[in-house]
Design a protein around this nucleic acid. Structure first.
Lengths: 144, 144
DNA sequence: GCCATATGATACTATCTTCGTATCATATGC
DNA sequence: GCATATGATACGAAGATAGTATCATATGGC
């Protein structure tokens, strides 16, 4: 399950992707536009900067920008930046050694197979693609 | 994420599938064989009975049996019996009305698409298939 | 230089979920 | 009648989640 924290991270990245090339945008603006608690968002953005998905500039006129082109950032990048394990189907997919039921587990194999597909799909969804899909409905876009 | 509770439910169902046609098996035996805390398992089995995936008989010589053939029980059935929401990628997949960011959300659409695939895959994995896959390794099977 | 504005870093807290235990009631075969 | 089995709930500890608070630091404009 994607947590609300990760959901906020995706929304924030999407907002910045919508306004890519417009210079730095403040956390306050993102919080306001995307309806995210400001202080909570601050901590999330800090993490995204740490994971090098965003770059920040401090001081007046400072703010956040995408570190890469929207084409080069996937949902998987964001999800993994926020929590490397959050979307796994089952803990044994990651930590197979912990599955003590037997040395071979058919469930594990099946879940791994599905997990690989899910990760591939998330990896194929770029911010650019999401922005493009939403651009068909200008009314609903978050405006500055 | 599949919780440990759901994981235990799958293990228990698998054990009962392995021994389908052998009459009722007690919760104590399943707990012992599958290394699951007995009282915790009791509550899980109660739920599986309530969801009509298992049938129970009380009293001496009582216990649990699969309510259907192993071919007719999928991982999706078990997961949904334990927690209808647990495996969803994002809460907005289920409760789209709660997604207030905008009336249209590209992320929602993408996640829904992946979720549908995951559910279809889980629905296609029957207990019979899992038992068959494990049967190639008799050493690892839980024996009575 | 000073100050408003911006992020960096981290500590704290309330609530919810998860995992597991405990208790008592009820049914049944020998 | 008693050992053995499930039915139904209540309870509790630990961890995750969601959000708040505080202080430090950097920077542009006056």
């Amino acid at each position: 399950m994607i947590t609300r924290e990760t959901d906020y991270a995706i929304r924030a990245m999407l907002y910045l992707a919508h306004h890519a090339g417009e210079g730095a945008i403040s956390a306050a603006e993102v919080a306001e536009a995307m309806d995210i608690p400001y202080r909570f968002l601050r901590r999330i953005l800090l993490r995204l900067v740490g994971k090098e998905l965003l770059v920040s500039t401090r001081g007046k006129q400072g703010g956040l920008r995408l570190a890469r082109n929207p084409e080069m950032v996937s949902l998987l990048d964001i999800v993994q930046a926020m929590d490397p394990e959050v979307i796994t189907l089952n803990s044994c997919v990651l930590k197979s050694a912990l599955c003590t039921r037997s040395s071979y587990c058919a469930v594990h194999d099946e879940l791994c197979r599905i997990q690989i597909f899910v990760n591939a799909e998330l990896g194929a969804i770029s911010l650019a693609r999401l922005v493009k899909h939403e651009s068909g409905r200008e009314d609903d876009l978050p405006q500055r």
